Amino acid sequence: NKFNKELQWATWEILNLPNLNEEQVKAFIDSLRDDPSQSANLLAEAKKLNDAQA
Rank of each mutant, 00 (worst) to 15 (best):
A44P: 02
N21M: 11
N1R: 02
A27I: 11
L20N: 00
L49H: 03
S31Y: 09
E23Q: 10
L43V: 15
D30N: 15
D34G: 13
D30A: 15
V25Y: 05
K48F: 10
Q38R: 11
N21E: 06
D51G: 09
E13G: 09
P36F: 11
E13S: 12
Q38P: 01
N4K: 03
A40P: 06
E45D: 08
N50E: 01
V25H: 05
Q53R: 04
S31E: 07
D30P: 00
E13V: 15
K2T: 11
V25I: 09
L20F: 01
K5L: 03
Q38G: 07
L20K: 00
D35P: 01
N16V: 04
L15I: 06
A27S: 13
L32A: 05
N1I: 04
L17N: 01
D51H: 10
D30G: 14
Q24P: 00
N16E: 04
S39D: 02
P36L: 08
N21H: 08
A46H: 00
K48S: 10
E13K: 14
E22I: 08
D34T: 11
N41F: 15
N4F: 11
A54F: 12
D35W: 06
N41Q: 09
E6D: 09
I14N: 01
S31F: 09
L49A: 06
L7F: 10
L20M: 02
W12R: 04
P36H: 04
A44N: 09
E45S: 11
L43P: 01
E45Q: 13
L42M: 08
N41E: 12
L49I: 08
D35H: 08
N41V: 13
V25F: 03
F28K: 00
F28I: 04
N1Y: 01
E22G: 11
P18G: 07
F28L: 04
W9D: 04
E23T: 13
S37Q: 08
A46I: 02
E45N: 09
A10G: 02
D35T: 08
I29E: 02
K2A: 15
F3V: 15
E22N: 12
K48M: 10
A46Y: 03
V25S: 08
N4D: 15
K47R: 13
D34Q: 12
L15T: 08
D51Y: 14
S31T: 08
I29V: 07
F3N: 14
L7N: 02
K5I: 04
L43I: 07
K5Q: 14
F3G: 14
L7T: 05
E23K: 13
A52M: 12
I14Q: 01
I14R: 00
A46V: 02
W9N: 05
K2L: 13
N41I: 10
S31D: 08
